[in-house]
């Protein structure tokens, strides 16, 4: 490489750096610095109004004896373990149906995707309250067949289930990704399978699923991380309390309660870091296990 072209590249590099400055500043000021600050605050007693006081591991020790913390962990784990597989299964099912070349495919794809755009919005959470409330649509329907239902959102046994249904309903985003994945599977493989006598189910289990595993894995990672961070629906549906009887006390809702209701920012920061580490560990585990069930075309 001539010294002239090196100089030219250096100039290009400098220009690139200049153009990157806004992003770098944004990353530093809006992400990196607050992230590091929250790490420091996690080891302090900080009520925002007064300077933080270093308390070492006290916030983390407090979690061990905090019933609310454990309630929020329990609710979040149930939600992740139930809603993510259900949502992915539903999304895959719909993607398979749409992949069969229905007429009006574009319409159905958009219609099914719509809840994904709206699902985590305040408006939909309010709508959910109206549907599952004491005088809601579901109970009015049940009343027609002589069943007197109670509020689904005020019964600790059903409140979380309604939020799981809400999450499953927002299947559009993984569905679109599944649909794209299905389009990548060569028809020849299905033809070969049919020639070998494979029925629809065998084609699905021996051709579709194996070749779709990278897409399933991708969706699984995204939806798991998203489910751990669920907040809006629980906040609106329970009025920010996580009730009834902590049955919708999601972890992020508890972090919010500690940070912005109790103004215990030190503890809230510690909780946030525990969540971040938990998500990182779960994601790492997914990647570790993936080598046993995810098949890439080149492997």
């Amino acid at each position: 490489m001539t010294s002239r072209s090196k100089f030219y590249l250096n100039r290009q590099g400098r220009a690139a750096h200049v153009f990157l400055i806004p992003w770098q500043l944004g990353f530093l000021l809006i992400t990196a610095v607050p992230l590091l600050a929250s790490l420091y605050l996690a080891f302090t007693n900080y009520d925002i109004l007064n300077p933080p006081e270093w308390t070492g591991l006290e916030n983390f020790q407090r979690m061990i004896h905090d019933d609310q913390f454990w309630a929020s962990v329990r609710v979040t784990l149930i939600y992740v373990l139930v809603s993510v597989p259900l949502q992915l299964a539903f999304a895959l099912l719909l993607a398979l149906i749409l992949d069969r070349g229905l007429s009006g495919l574009a319409f159905y794809r958009s219609a099914f995707y719509l809840p994904s755009l709206l699902g985590s919005s305040v408006a939909i959470a309010i709508l959910w309250r109206e549907i599952f409330g004491d005088d809601g649509l579901i109970n009015k329907g049940l009343a027609l067949i002589g069943i007197h239902g109670e509020s689904w959102l005020q019964n600790p046994r059903t409140a979380l289930a309604t939020l799981i249904v809400l999450n499953v309903w927002t299947f559009g985003s993984p569905m679109v990704i599944f649909l794209a994945g299905l389009r990548q599977i060569p028809d020849e493989l299905y033809e070969a399978a049919r020639v070998d006598g494979a029925g629809v189910w065998r084609q699905f289990t021996h051709v579709t699923v194996p070749l779709l595993t990278p897409i399933i894995f991708f969706n699984l990672i995204l939806q798991t991380i998203g489910a751990f961070q669920t907040f809006t629906q629980a906040h609106i549906v329970s009025g920010g309390t996580g009730g009834p009887a902590n049955s919708t006390l999601f972890y992020t809702l508890y972090v919010y309660q500690q940070g912005f209701v109790a103004f215990d920012m030190g503890y809230a920061s510690a909780l946030a870091w525990v969540l971040m580490v938990a998500i990182a560990v779960v994601t790492a585990l997914h990647f570790l296990v993936s080598k046993y069930w995810v098949f890439y075309g080149d492997s």
């Binding site: 309250r129 409330g133 004491d134 109670e150 509020s151 959102l153 005020q154 019964n155 329970s238 009025g239 309390t241 009730g243 009834p244």
Partner: peptide, 10 residues
């Protein structure tokens, strides 16, 4: 009222 009838506390 029950909690169900009044849709929760408050």
């Amino acid at each position: 009222l029950s909690l169900s009838e009044q849709e929760g506390m408050g």
